[in-house]
Structure formats: structure tokens, C-alpha cells
Design a protein around this nucleic acid. Sequence first.
DNA 1: TTGTATGCGTTATCAT
DNA 2: ATGATAACGCATACAA
Lengths: 318, 318
Amino acid sequence: MTVSRALRDPDKVSAKTLEKIKAVVDRLGYVPDPAASALAAGKTNVIGVIVPSVTNNVFSDVMRGIYEAAEGSKWQIQLGNSRYSPLEEESLVRTFLSQKPAGLILSGLDQSEETSKLLMGADCRIVQIMECGPDPFDMMIGFSHVDASAAATRHLLDAGYERPGYIAARLDPRSQRRLAGFKAAAEKAGVFDPARIVTTPRASTVTLGCELVADLLSKAPQTDAILCNNDDLALGALFECQRRGLRIPEDIGLCGFNDLEMMAAANPPVTSVRTFRLAMGREALRMLTGALAGIEPETPVVDLGYEVIARQSTARVG
Amino acid sequence: MTVSRALRDPDKVSAKTLEKIKAVVDRLGYVPDPAASALAAGKTNVIGVIVPSVTNNVFSDVMRGIYEAAEGSKWQIQLGNSRYSPLEEESLVRTFLSQKPAGLILSGLDQSEETSKLLMGADCRIVQIMECGPDPFDMMIGFSHVDASAAATRHLLDAGYERPGYIAARLDPRSQRRLAGFKAAAEKAGVFDPARIVTTPRASTVTLGCELVADLLSKAPQTDAILCNNDDLALGALFECQRRGLRIPEDIGLCGFNDLEMMAAANPPVTSVRTFRLAMGREALRMLTGALAGIEPETPVVDLGYEVIARQSTARVG
DNA sequence: TTGTATGCGTTATCAT
DNA sequence: ATGATAACGCATACAA
């Protein structure tokens, strides 16, 4: 019993005993059994993280933030991949909950009915990431996708483009909200034309960016700017426009979303909407572990905002 | 006890009892406690995976392969991020082993002395991924980085380039072996010049690809082809060459490594060395779970090979 | 095929 | 500050 205390909370043991214990632990190479601990205590140091994709750059940055913030602490990150499927998400939540986790980090606002039920009854802290919305299960950190893409749209219009189009792949809930933001801003400016929207359920790739641009330009050749649902598509769009001899930004403007590192290095550099993915992961974990330590966040919902990074690809001359 | 059996091995229970049990399990929403199971059985269904980076595209593809192969099975994937640090790797191995995992998947051949000791004494199956080498702890699946980059180098020479350079970032063991492969092939052809090698300890980015090319061309302006340690650098190299008005492939040839999806979409399409990352993850998990089920692989070391995908960026005319 | 007794290694609780 | 006891929920070994 004293050993158990010494290892978990050294202050509760006299210095002398502590020393003795440490020596023996070292000599024997003793390592506590987490399973026995979990069984006896009825809880674990596991923090479950569920993301829709482990390949997508966006989520890998968030994951990195989470791992960095957890580094060296007692918290164990456990990663689940829902592959954009609400059913797989539900199954993962079930699995995680059976492990009596200390906390759960989920992506987005659109959990299924069943998942919501599980989460409401869950005896752990929860952080939703990637978006901001009105009704967090517990805590939330992200930004408004509608606002961010509306801002990007206005940037295109302010730059002098008059017939903006939109390309998107895999319409997950966040993509749909970005599309809605574009539509709202374009309608407000009186430049919305559904013929200039091209989408597909396929997953985003650079190649797909090329194809979507080809589609868009054949359907609506007058398009003079393209807002891309993410930077992979934007890179494809850049390549495809250049292959067609279109000058960027003179003939056509280009804007991405997320501001991956490559956008600044491109030729020409591509305008994008910066999002704070590393910080989001880091802060999500901090909110969670803080709450577990009894320190509640000032507000349950944290909006990290976004920033339109204007570059040459939308710097129309004249 | 019968319930325990029914849930783990339904065949050992009569159909009638099974049905009754299922009904009650459903009604009560019973979920077994993995901690209690681990404690009683002295083992778990956890498969620990340690990768050096969760951001790098290369590893995210491998991870995806692992997750896909584990989907729906009883095996629980647990991911650790060693951030290219042998010490963090050692700490992760220690943590994983305390959980009595069924298996471990590690990256590379270069575990520390201490890590090796831990692994030799470990009571679980082990798969090393990313590389092939002579002395697996247990099983191994990957390819030869030396051979792959030597093949890429020969491709450049066969295409008629005569003064190939090499750019690389973050010289982890695999990068070093790729550099060694380039050097060996270039020396063999009598075209090796250390002035045409530019490296940095910084992590690979597209922007860094631009900078390294700038460096290379200022140190060795006669360079007529660049072999890039990975595709991020290659993309940066593409942009930087184009910014400088160099024609690809006429003035300078370009070859990447890994064949990320974007290389085929680029303008011009960029030659790269294809590696089988998704398959590597998938097969690593299959080898592991197969072995756990008593089915040993035909050979402990599996070489997945590589393929030089020649594209326009090295199609020199004349 | 089903059930009983026992123990896994830790922690909560209470006592000293 | 330290220690004794019981309990956590499941699986092993064995019995019926």
C-alpha cells in the first residue's frame, strides 16, 4: 500500500520510506500494471481521440498538437480512426468508454443520435474539436467554417473577381458548411451561380483538384476565380490552370483552405485561409487535462478563428 | 463463466444458452471490462504501433493501412509518436510493454541498445516496418532504401543527365541510407561530386525544398538533375526551378521519393520512386495477427520492393 | 456443456 | 505516516 502511494503521490510518504522504495523499485525494475490499477480504481489515464482520417494533413496537424501537449504527462493518448463514418465513430466511442477513459476528444458537431446518448451518459470529460457550435456536450474548440469561407469569398470579390466558382470533394459536414459560407457571401454580393459549383463525394486529392477545375471550366468557362474547399484541391487547381495556359492571378484567381505549408512555397504563392490546427490539438488537450485537474476553462466553447492569408494567386492587377 | 465463454468463443456454448445470453447482454447493455480481462488473463488485445511522426504523409499512409487491416477485428491499435527520438521510442516501448500487448509494430532497424534489450525480453510478437535488414527481432516488412535511391539515380543517368545533385532534410537513418544509395550509384558511374549534395537537419517541408535547391544551384550551378530525398522537397524543388525560369526536364531533371499522389498531378508530372506504404501497414498487421493466430509468415523478412515511376520531369529530350 | 473456486495486482477504506 | 483487509470483474483450472 505504501508503495502504491509512494509511486502515485510521493508527498504522502516520508522521505526516508520514499527513498527505500525507489531503490527497491529500481533494483527490481518494477513497473505498475495499468490493468490492475484500472480495475481497482475504476478509471484510467486514457484520453481517447477520434478523428475521421489519419491521412488528411489537417487532422495530422491536430494529432501532432495533441501528442505534443500530452508528452511527458501521465495521460495516455489513444487514437481512433472513424473514416468519416458516424457508425464507426459510434463503435469507437463504445470501445473507448468500456475502458473508462479520463477524457474523450471528438471531431465535429455531428455525432449520431446513438453516439450522443452514449456521450451524455459518459463518466468522462469531452472536448469536441474542429468546429464551434452552440451545444457542446462538455467543451469545444474550433472555428466557424461558414464564416471562414465567407471571408475567403469576400476576399476574392474585394480583389476584383466577379464570377467566383467553388470546388469541393467529400462533403463531410465541415465541407458543407464551407460551401454554405461561399454561397451566402456570393449571394449577398449578387454573384452566385450554381453552375460554378462543382462537387464530388470522392475523397480530396491533388489529382481530383485538376479534374474538378476541368469540370468547372467546361461548365462555366467565364469563371474568373476558384475557391477550393481545401489546399490539396487548390494545388491541383494550380497545376491544371497552368497546364491550360491560364495566368494566375490575371486570368483566374485561386484560393485554398487551411493554409498548408506548401501554399506559401508554390509558384505563384497561393492565397489560403489559415486555420490553427496545431494550437487546436494542443489547447483541446490542455482544456481536457485542466478540467480533469479541477481547472474549468473560462468558457466551454473556444473559437480560435481563422485568417485569410492573401498571396499572389489572388492579387489581380487592375 | 458461461457468459465469459459465450462472448469470447461462442462455439463453446450451446445455441440455446448463447441466445439467452445475447438477449440479456443486449437488454442490459453489458460491455466487458477490458481491464479486468487483462488482469485475469495476463494479456491484452492491444497492438502497439510506434511511428516517428504522425504528420509525415509517409507514415500516415502506413497508419491507414494498419487501421484498415485492424478494422472490425478484436485487435486494438494503440499509436505512439516517437518524434524521431530513440529515447522517446524507448519510453514508448516501456509503456506499451507494461500493458502486456499482443504485439508491437516499430519503425526501422535502428532501435537503441536499451530498446533492443526490452524487445528481446518482451513476451509479444514484433514487426519492424519501413526497411529490410538482416536481423529482425521477430518479423520485418519494408524495402531497401539504398537500392531504391540507387535505382532512381541510375534512372537519371539513363535519361542522359550527367551532373546529378541530391537534396535532403532531417537525416534520419532511412534518409541516410537513401543518400548512401545515391552516392554509391553516382560514384559507380563516375559522376559523384560532393558539392552537389545539400542537406540540413531541419524537418522536410516544401519551402525547405525551395531553399535547398537555391543552395544547391548556387554551390553547383552546373547541376543538371536533382534527386530529392522525398516528395515534399521535390515539390519545393519544382516550384523553385520554375521560379528561376529553368525548364523541366530540359534544363534540369527532377526526381522525388515515395510517389505521393500529387507527383502525378504536378505540372509537369514529376518522376518519383513508388513505395508501398499502405500495403506495408496492412501486411505488417496481417503478419502480426497471423502469427498470433499460429500462422507463421513464410519468411520472417518481407521485401516489398519499390518502383521508379518515370514521368515528364526526367524525360530529357536529346 | 455448464458451473465452482480461486487468483490476477492494484487501490479505497479504515485502523493503527 | 504506515499498514491490514476487501474488493474491482474477469479468466484459468478443474469438477460436475
